[in-house]
Nucleic acid binder design. Structure first.
Lengths: 143, 143
DNA sequence: CGATTCCCGAGTATTCCAGTCAAGATTACG
DNA sequence: CGTAATCTTGACTGGAATACTCGGGAATCG
């Protein structure tokens, strides 16, 4: 949920980085462009920093930058940094005791792996390119 | 979350149905075997009935039965009946306005489709067979 | 120094979820 | 018919998570 904000913000960050190489990007700039409350973004980016997705420098003319190139930063990295690893397959805790022998749990595990697969194969760079393509061409199709 | 209880309960229901053809299954029976609070199961099965997954008859010697054969009842059916269709890709509501043109949203849509794919390909019958296999063979591997 | 920017912890208002309670409706069977 | 068994419904609750907000503190640059 908050991952969605993060992904969009990171895409914007990647775009700004591309146009002004070297310079750090202010959070207020991103917040304004995407219409997200600044103080909420601060909280999100703090978590992203702890997760090693972005790096920061503070003080005047400080800001954020991607820790790795946009094409090596996956959406899964972002989700893990924010919401923790998605675990719809908690086995070994309360509900899974001797009675059912984890046969029913296998679906959730497979589902989780499928989900992680998609998230791990998509990078921020991909999204930036997709956004560029949409911006050039069509009017907006609200799915 | 509550889908997990439902899937396990339905697996148990399928097993009981298999052994006593024709007879309806009491919820209290399922609840006891899986150690789930009865009144919670009632609530879950009410939703399953509205979703067309199970059928019921009330009164003495009433109970529940699968609406379709176990091999034609998918896990996706269950999840949809309980939590509604999983929609990590809400587009057209608040957060997705003109600024980002849904380029970033494509990941969530793909993720959702991958997840639905897995859930739609697994049936209650599959799970029952998996559980049987585990019961025969190994001690329990808590994943 | 002082402006700018990130950083952090606490606070809040709302929403969601697991589980409970109590009473009503329907059927079976004697 | 009457009674017991069983499903059906709806409201309710306590706790957790979520989406923010606020206010101040710390680093860095000019």
């Amino acid at each position: 949920m908050k991952s969605r904000y993060a992904v969009r913000a990171l895409t914007e960050l990647a775009r700004l980085e591309r146009s002004q190489a070297g310079r750090l990007v202010r959070l207020s700039e991103v917040a304004e462009r995407r219409g997200v409350p600044l103080q909420f973004l601060e909280q999100v980016f703090a978590a992203l920093r702890r997760g090693g997705v972005v790096r920061s420098r503070r003080g005047a003319s400080g800001g954020y930058t991607l820790a790795r190139p946009a094409d090596e930063t996956t959406v899964l990295d972002v989700v893990v940094a924010l919401d923790g690893v998605p675990a719809p397959a908690e086995c070994g805790q309360g509900p899974c005791d001797q009675i059912d022998r984890c046969g029913a749990s296998s679906v959730w595990i497979e589902a989780q792996q499928a989900l992680e697969g998609v998230l791990a194969e998509t990078t921020i760079g991909d999204l930036l390119r997709r956004e560029d393509a949409l911006g050039d061409a069509a009017p907006m199709y609200h799915i």
